[in-house]
Nucleic acid binder design. Sequence first.
DNA 1: TTAATCCATATAACTCTAATAGGAATTGAA
DNA 2: TTCAATTCCTATTAGAGTTATATGGATTAA
Lengths: 145, 145
Amino acid sequence: MLSMKCKYALKALVVLAAEGKKLPSSAIAQKARVPAKFLEAILTDLRKADALTSERGAHGGHTLKGAPEKIMLGHVVRAMDGMLAPIPCASTFYYKKCDDCTDEKICVIRHAMLEVRNKISEVLDGLSLEDLLNMSPKKKQQLFW
Amino acid sequence: MLSMKCKYALKALVVLAAEGKKLPSSAIAQKARVPAKFLEAILTDLRKADALTSERGAHGGHTLKGAPEKIMLGHVVRAMDGMLAPIPCASTFYYKKCDDCTDEKICVIRHAMLEVRNKISEVLDGLSLEDLLNMSPKKKQQLFW
DNA sequence: TTAATCCATATAACTCTAATAGGAATTGAA
DNA sequence: TTCAATTCCTATTAGAGTTATATGGATTAA
Ligand code: FES
Ligand code: FES
């Protein structure tokens, strides 16, 4: 399950990608329709995840770090929610052993969930912010949701 | 994320499929390495999900309902954890509208997550308990994990 | 100096998870 | 009839995670 935090993060990044310029968090919150104070915390996490840069003070704001086609959904989702895999033993970035399984190599549950995690990764690590923008049929009006 | 409950449910069903006969919950708990009392509740849910039948009293127990190749992982996961989709608006069985989106049809987040949900469904609705059994290289010894 | 803005910390309400506990009801067999 | 095995039902619990809100400090440009 994608958390609201992660969904808001994606929306914030799409707004930044669409505008292509520095925006204060209040403007992002308004355009993305996200609770303003919650968004502040999210933007901090996105900065730590290297997805954007922030400038403080008057006329400060947040700018996308790098081109929209370089920022992948998988990276954002991992930074917000952790692993893509349905189960820790099937995760590559957040691997953790299963206490209730004795032999990981033969575990049929793990094998099945590895297939799932690979499919999820194929989609999310293959989609960039630019791809998201191009999904919108109403690009000009900036109505993305 | 797959809950422990769901993982235990899958393990219980794999045990039942492998043994191919009626088993009391205590025996399932032992073979599946699952907390016995927790398993009781899980078995009740699996019965409600039509995955097995239960007989009470002495010599009672639980029996797989239907052939192992007919019971799909997707069905089990949905019964235990709910939707497969990462987000409610992208779910077919557990659909729910997004409060923070005005137009679902153009929502780029939803479009991306629909792709994810379809891939997950392809895997989990395409794998049966029988398939899980066949994934094990040590079929004879019944070591599945 | 002021206003805008990011940043850090604390907190709160709520829900979900992963169980455990105790006992009632059912059944087959001695 | 009694016993033991077993499912079934209800309640409880401790801890974690989610989704925020509140307050105020630090930084910056005009
Ligand atoms: S090793 Fe993770 S489910 Fe078996
Ligand atoms: S409609 Fe669900 S994320 Fe936009």
